[in-house]
Simulated scan of single mutants.
Amino acid sequence: MSSPSTPARGRPPRLDRARTVQTALDLLDRSGLDALTMRRLAEAMGVQAGALYRHFATKQDLLTAMAERMMDGVTEAAAQTRGGDWTERLAALAHALRAALLARRDGARVFAGTHATGASVLGFADAVMGVLREAGFPAEDAARALYTLTNFTVGHTLEEQAALPWGDADPAGPAALADAVADGTYPHLEAGLPALTSADFTRLFEFGVGLLLEGLRARR
């Protein structure tokens, strides 16, 4: 005889939010965001598509829950630099966010546009604002800096993931850019080609975060 928490033999496991989100993330890694549909998710879980709507009214609700799950542990990972100054702590939080988004295929696309209010997302946001307020920034400036740092990180990672092997970006993009500026019409772009076509996204990210932190330091 099966217990209430154990499905009877031959029946699919009980549907719950946690398992649904995990299965959706697994499908995301295998096939990407464009292929993640409620129908395919239901098939992977062995249930009717309508059953999913008991937990998620829309696909956007599902994406929001996925974004929240992706942020699990981000604040804790960044806390390793707790003893550093405020700029080092902010940089660590930005790097931890990028790493969380890169850990999932199309992670930045999933995260962009969601408005999760779970403990992981709010904990990250509160940590960023806490660092800034402790550094002397008023709450309004800290909030705006939170948006700026988060938007840069998500936007950068969107472009980074588009250039990954599983992305939709044209792999000939760097060569196409080089050909487009080779006739001398755009001399400044031609001069910057080594940086513009570099695949060193970590260096590019660090440069951008550094600019943001220098601006915040000057404002402070």
Rank of each mutant, 00 (worst) to 15 (best):
G107Y: 14
R105D: 06
T75V: 13
R82P: 00
G123V: 07
A108S: 12
R40A: 13
L15M: 06
R104A: 06
T64V: 14
R98H: 12
A65L: 05
L122H: 03
A35S: 13
R19V: 05
E43P: 00
H95T: 06
G83R: 15
E134C: 00
R109C: 03
G84C: 11
E68V: 06
G83Y: 09
D34A: 15
G118L: 09
L41G: 03
A100F: 10
G130I: 01
F111L: 08
T20G: 02
G107A: 09
T20R: 02
M70H: 08
A91R: 15
G123N: 09
L41N: 06
S120E: 13
A57F: 09
R54D: 10
R69M: 04
R104E: 11
M71Y: 04
T37M: 07
L15E: 03
T64M: 06
V21I: 15
M45V: 05
V47A: 03
A116N: 05
E76Q: 14
M45R: 14
L25Q: 11
D16N: 15
Y53I: 05
A51M: 11
A119Q: 09
G136N: 07
Q80M: 03
A51Q: 14
G107F: 15
A103S: 12
W86S: 02
M129F: 00
D72T: 13
D141I: 00
R30P: 01
T64H: 09
R69K: 06
A94H: 03
A116L: 03
R89T: 01
G83Q: 15
V21D: 04
D29W: 12
Q80V: 15
R30F: 01
L52C: 04
V21K: 04
S120L: 02
E76D: 13
H115Q: 09
P138S: 00
D26S: 10
F111A: 10
D29E: 14
A99P: 00
A91T: 08
A67T: 15
A116E: 07
L15H: 03
A99E: 12
A142N: 00
T75K: 10
V74I: 09
A112D: 12
L27Q: 13
R89H: 06
R40C: 01
D34I: 02
L52H: 05
R104W: 14
R19L: 02
S31T: 12
R54E: 12
D29I: 07
D85A: 08
P138C: 01
L63T: 02
M129Q: 12
G32W: 14
Q48H: 15
A127I: 01
V128Q: 04
L97I: 01
L28G: 10
M45I: 05
A99G: 02
T23A: 11
A91D: 15
A65G: 04
L52T: 05
